[in-house]
Design a protein around this nucleic acid. Structure first.
Lengths: 196, 196
DNA sequence: CCTTCATCGAACCGATCAGTTCGATGAGAG
DNA sequence: CTCTCATCGAACTGATCGGTTCGATGAAGG
């Protein structure tokens, strides 16, 4: 990142570096909790560079959220695929991955959903809705392969569990008062088995 | 609320009116989406009155969140009590109440949880953690009365469902793209029955 | 009647913010 | 070597924000 004055690096690399820094800062401090000036300082770039690449702070937020949604969804899809063909194993793998995420010290919930809660207007809400639909599709697919009578309904139930566990886990770290965790996978498997 | 210049109304009533307006405005626009000046205008009071009652915007936020948490928890407790002695009926009543709430056009998710997501520092996070603990206590009590082997674990599972359904429902209204709803109660009952 | 005081309304303050502009710099391309 | 242009860094703008202050007002209480 120590880009010199007249550096002519790959512009795509500059853009990626801005995205990387902005993703972490928006997640940690909230969309309104970090200013463009500080963001540029932390990313090691100038304001002019940021505005040439993204046009506005909202444009940067949109790019960050799109990338974050893609990464998270693909991460869970890969976790399910890697678990083999058994739908129960796939579901267990998804929730194992999630619970590993919850344990990271910087975990603060889902960045996309959090952003939509912070900025009801603007691109965040639409991206979050699509994000939830993708989660729902993933879980509905597992329910369908498990032979559920109404896969979309079971997918919705599993989606509630996933999002609820994420929200609850996201509130643990600042204070004490941690509620019981590790129940999300058990609940998900119970719901899937009850649907067959 | 058209309070005249030298009005000597019950100060407690003035305070309550500020709280009422602030609760709605913070919920609709977010904690950072509404300024003190506009809030005062909408509440029909002057800035000096607001600052005498609450000291700061953060003080007002704290009072709003405390009151909102109390109201919501008591509302669900009453819904459960009114359903009689059968734990399954109590759980159904809680999720019926929630799903009625989700259908309101102004529904935007849980104000307390949303606030903690917006302001990670300050009083919001602590209030939200306590809020979730109270929800967990309510649901754990139902699980215990239903004879669950591990009531706290079942309470956590139900808490995930409750929060997840709230978050998902809170993202439906701005855009189209509504996911399946109405599955929260069915999932909750499935989990409760599986635990007996 | 007269004191008290909650209230209004408007001006004011310092800080911060998103976004713009510009001269200087230096690496890569021809 | 020279032109191009992405980049830096710093200054600047206009708006908004949270919070303070103050004189005027008028209802309640003695």
């Amino acid at each position: 990142m120590p880009v010199a004055k007249g550096a002519r690096l790959d512009p795509a690399r500059t853009r990626a570096e801005i995205l990387r820094a902005a993703t972490a800062l928006f997640y940690a401090h909230g969309l309104d909790g970090i200013g463009v000036a500080e963001l540029c300082a932390r990313a090691g770039i100038s304001k002019e560079t940021l505005y040439r690449h993204f046009g506005s702070k909202d444009g940067l937020v949109e790019a960050v959220l799109e990338a974050r949604s893609d990464r998270t969804v693909h991460w869970l899809e890969r976790a399910a695929e890697a678990a083999g063909d058994d739908p129960e194993r796939q579901l267990a793998a998804v929730f194992d991955a999630l619970e590993g995420w919850y344990g990271e010290p910087a975990f603060r919930g889902c960045a996309v959903v959090n952003a939509a809660i912070q900025h009801r207007e603007g691109p965040a809400l639409g991206i979050a809705v699509r994000h939830l639909v993708r989660y729902h599709d993933l879980l509905t697919g597992i329910a369908a392969r498990a032979g559920a009578a109404d896969p979309a309904a079971v997918g919705a139930q599993l989606l509630y569990l996933l999002e609820g566990a994420t929200v609850v886990a996201g509130h643990q770290g600042g204070d004490g008062a941690r509620g019981p965790t590790g129940q999300a996978k058990a609940a998900a498997l119970t719901l899937l088995r009850a649907a067959r």
